[in-house]
Design a protein around this nucleic acid. Structure first.
Lengths: 183, 183
DNA sequence: TAAACCATGTAACATGTTACATGATTTT
DNA sequence: AAAATCATGTAACATGTTACATGGTTTA
């Protein structure tokens, strides 16, 4: 529902090839809308067929050659339309919460180690966001674009903060719990 | 990847028919793993074919008749295996964050009203969780199952708290921003 | 010149969404 | 007896995942 718009956004920020987009989806854009290179190539084909993007003129590369795309006016219009249209928030879907609920029925064996591992992963992600904030949003600079992008980063920071705290709380609970049998 | 295990968990808690499961996925279980009735019926068929669940014996209903399922030992074993197995957290994928990033390129027209609407929705969800906490987890009662389920509810509460705060912050930023053009 | 990597893709499958179909039961 | 609701499904499609294929470029 939103992958095409994520790609349109990325290309509107800067024309890119499929691989460059893949790299950007591994960092910045991908922090809140992930996608694999297969998804990206498939979607690029559709967007081009629909006339929303086009290959940069002056390049007609063969297979294995880099091919860059830019957004057409129709693509920009579609992106603006989508951005302004109301959309409901997606209901939460989280594997770890489901596993804890399952653990209440079949026992908690093994899950504590993974809680610890998740805590480590979220703490690392939080540290990465803090680095980005320090680097890209020093105090004082505040254009409208900067503010919007900082707002998005803020959400990432606060979410990772939430997860680290919640996981610490969960591990503290586990420390007080009895063994591994069905709870 | 997890829908079958969500269903196994629900059925392990209490044998149910497809429609009863659908109702439970609209409340409790669905708060962290949503599913439609079409997904549920399709998955029930697979789980039965795989021998992980079975229709309650003593009932052989026709089309349009209620059919209840229970978990078989193999299903319980699979659920325990899945619960204990390490799994990576899914990367975040959030439409509103993507829209804000897009708004930095194509303009913020229309998005503020939807931020307000989302704030309303999240505040309502938060209030619902607070009701559930008051009702189901009064202070003092703390069996192991209770603690695990409370932990899961706590995550829902804290997440909705995060969203309401972040949306309030976002709206405050918008109040200081200039008009609707590309930022 | 072989290995590693860059770059674009195909194919098969799993999962999720939307629209519709059908029979049974309850309510008006 | 018509309408609403309960209950279970089918079909078509959109999206996401995993494994593999292929040609070009750089590096050991």
């Amino acid at each position: 529902m939103s992958l095409p718009h994520a790609i349109l956004t990325a290309l509107a920020e800067r024309p890119s090839s499929g691989l460059e987009l893949t790299r950007r989806f591994d960092r910045s854009i991908g922090y809140f809308w992930s996608a694999t290179h297969q998804q990206i190539y498939r979607e690029l084909g559709k967007l081009e067929a629909d006339g929303l993007i086009r290959a940069l003129p002056g390049e007609q590369p063969a297979r294995g050659q880099k091919k860059s795309y830019e957004v057409m006016p129709a693509g920009r219009a579609e992106l603006a339309r989508w951005t302004a249209a109301p959309q409901d928030p997606k209901p939460l879907r989280d594997g770890m919460l489901l596993r804890l609920r399952a653990a209440a029925v079949v026992g908690t064996a093994g899950i504590e180690a993974d809680l610890r591992r998740h805590l480590e992963l979220h703490a690392r992600q939080l540290a990465e966001y803090e680095e980005i904030e320090k680097r890209d949003f020093p105090p004082g600079r505040d254009s409208a674009e900067d503010r919007l992008r900082h707002l998005v980063l803020r959400a990432g920071l606060d979410l990772e903060t939430f997860w680290t705290r919640w996981l610490e709380h969960a591990l503290a609970e586990f420390a007080e719990l009895p063994g591994d049998g069905p709870a």
